[in-house]
């Protein structure tokens, strides 16, 4: 099976600045692929090259099996794209813009009527008759997502689709992307880790123009994430936390609520043997002890390093 996106040793330079440095990326057909990276990592640059808006300095980029350098209307007909800041004709209404976008794909009247209705509904813009010029950023973002779907693309590329949205809007967009799983390949950039954790099956982490990790999300967490143990006691949590912190296998000790201690451990086996003994030695009531979930955030911070967040 040909991958939906295949990037090989892609380098992009602006003058002396290397925005992308030998990037390799493979997005399998049907996957929801999260493209993570801090500000200035090169996410937008990558998407601009994938959509043919910018050209690679070096390397090859293939989209839906076609080299982007020679991609024509036929290839673009199968792609949906939302740029980081979508620009609309401000004199149009949302419906007019969707119809215009559909017209560019040559979509027939009947299908277009139907899709326009569905997508307006999806974007929450059904009853809004004002011109786009009067829209808020979030409304434009939602219309941007809707217009990217007008051609029912087999590859959907989105540059920070949730950045301008409130929590409800974010949830709607993520749910919608998730509902496309299996039918459409979704490739989206973000620096919001929770979004990626929620819907992506595969992740690539980009930093300073380089891919520092690319793998299925569980594998990535397992590979890079140190493990975590959560302990909850009825009393004496302060003293216990201090004692755990002094142990060689404890990398980091956090206190969540009053009596809960979250320990990041380097040796899970040693920790699971030692902690019950420490609790018992102090005669503390043990309410709970379990393996905590390692978040993508920690993986991200580990790989990308502090100071940027």
């Amino acid at each position: 099976m040909t991958p939906a996106v295949e990037i090989r040793r892609l380098t992009k330079t602006y003058g002396h600045k290397r925005a992308l440095d030998r990037v390799d990326l493979r997005v399998e057909e049907g996957s929801i692929f999260g493209f993570l990276g801090p500000n200035g990592a090169g996410k937008t640059t990558t998407l601009r090259i994938l959509t043919g808006l910018a050209r690679p300095t070096k390397g090859t980029v293939r989209v839906l099996g076609h080299d982007v350098a020679t991609a024509d209307n036929a290839v673009r007909a199968d792609i949906g794209f939302l740029p980081d800041v979508p620009g609309f004709y401000e004199w149009m209404t949302a419906e007019e813009f969707l119809r215009f976008a559909g017209g560019l794909f040559g979509i027939g009247r009947k299908v277009l009527d139907e899709r326009t209705g569905v997508l307006l509904e999806l974007a929450g813009l059904t009853d809004i008759t004002t011109r786009i010029g009067g829209y808020s950023r979030g409304m434009k973002q939602r219309l941007g997502v809707a217009q990217a779907l007008i051609n029912a693309p087999s590859l959907l590329m989105l540059d920070e689709p949730t950045s301008a949205l409130d929590p409800m809007g974010r949830k709607d967009v993520l749910d919608m992307l998730q509902s496309l799983r299996g039918r459409t390949t979704v490739f989206f950039s973000t620096h919001i880790l929770a979004d990626v954790e929620r819907i992506c099956d595969t992740v690539a982490i980009l930093d300073h123009g380089r891919v520092v990790a690319q793998a299925p999300i569980d594998e990535l967490k397992a590979r890079y994430g140190a493990e975590k143990v959560v302990v909850e006691v009825g009393e004496g949590a302060d003293e216990l936390a201090a004692a755990i912190g002094a142990e060689p296998w404890a990398a980091k000790v956090e206190r969540d609520t009053n009596d809960t201690i979250a320990v990041t451990v380097t040796d899970a086996d040693a920790a699971s043997r030692a902690i019950p003994a420490m609790v018992a030695a102090r005669r503390l009531p043990l309410h709970r002890m379990e393996a905590g979930e390692m978040g993508l955030e920690e993986v991200f911070v580990q790989l990308v390093g502090g100071g940027q967040q």
């Binding site: 808006l53 673009r76 007909a77 800041v85 620009g87």
Partner: peptide, 14 residues
């Protein structure tokens, strides 16, 4: 400048 060209030219318009 307005970004409208990006939305048009990533669709089947050369």
């Amino acid at each position: 400048k307005s970004g409208t060209a990006v939305l048009v030219l990533t669709k089947p318009v050369s």
